[in-house]
Lab assay of single mutants.
Amino acid sequence: RFRLSPAARNILEKHSLDASQGTATGPRGIFTKEDALKLVQLKQTGK
């Protein structure tokens, strides 16, 4: 289970993504908004 920032949680839910597909870069291993946006971008480019 990942620790998600509220913004990251919202983005992941909106795009039906799972945090385990990305890398948490925030302090103390928190999955940040920026991490979520990177994951969305990867999904949109098909990689």
Rank of each mutant, 00 (worst) to 15 (best):
Q21C: 11
R1C: 04
A7Q: 14
H15K: 06
R28D: 15
G46F: 05
Q21P: 05
R3S: 11
L37M: 11
K33S: 08
L39N: 14
L39F: 01
K43E: 06
T32P: 04
F31G: 10
R9P: 04
L37A: 03
V40F: 03
K43W: 02
Q21L: 13
A7M: 06
A36R: 01
Q41N: 11
K33Q: 14
Q44A: 13
A19E: 11
K43V: 09
G22N: 02
F31M: 06
F31H: 10
V40N: 05
S5G: 03
T25Y: 00
K47N: 01
A7Y: 00
A36Q: 06
K43H: 15
R3T: 14
E34S: 11
A7K: 11
G26P: 03
K14Y: 08
L12E: 13
L17K: 04
G29H: 01
F31T: 11
I30L: 15
A36T: 02
T32R: 01
R9S: 09
K43N: 13
T32N: 01
R1S: 15
R1I: 08
N10P: 11
Q41E: 15
A24H: 05
H15E: 11
P27L: 03
T23H: 08
Q44V: 12
D35F: 00
R28C: 13
D18P: 01
S16G: 15
T25C: 05
P6E: 15
L12R: 06
V40M: 05
P6D: 12
K43D: 10
I30C: 10
T32H: 06
Q21K: 07
N10G: 13
K38M: 09
D18V: 02
G46Y: 15
R1A: 14
A8S: 06
S20D: 15
V40C: 11
D18G: 03
P27M: 03
L42W: 09
D18M: 06
L37R: 06
F2N: 15
S5M: 13
S16A: 11
L4G: 09
A8L: 00
E13N: 15
A24E: 07
A36S: 04
E13P: 03
K14S: 09
E13Q: 10
K47E: 15
R9G: 11
T23Y: 08
T45Q: 10
K14H: 11
G22I: 05
S20F: 03
A36D: 09
F31Y: 07
E34D: 13
R28N: 15
F31P: 10
F31N: 13
S16D: 14
A36W: 00
L17H: 08
R9Y: 04
P6W: 09
S16I: 00
L37T: 13
L39A: 08
L4T: 10
D35E: 05
R9E: 10
I30K: 08
P27N: 05
R28F: 12
P6N: 13
L39Q: 02
K43F: 08
Q44W: 02
I11F: 05
K47R: 08
G29A: 06
A8Y: 00
S5E: 15
K33F: 02
S5V: 02
R1P: 00
K38V: 06
G26V: 04
K14E: 15
I30Y: 08
Q21G: 12
L37D: 14
A7S: 13
L4P: 07
T25L: 04
T45C: 10
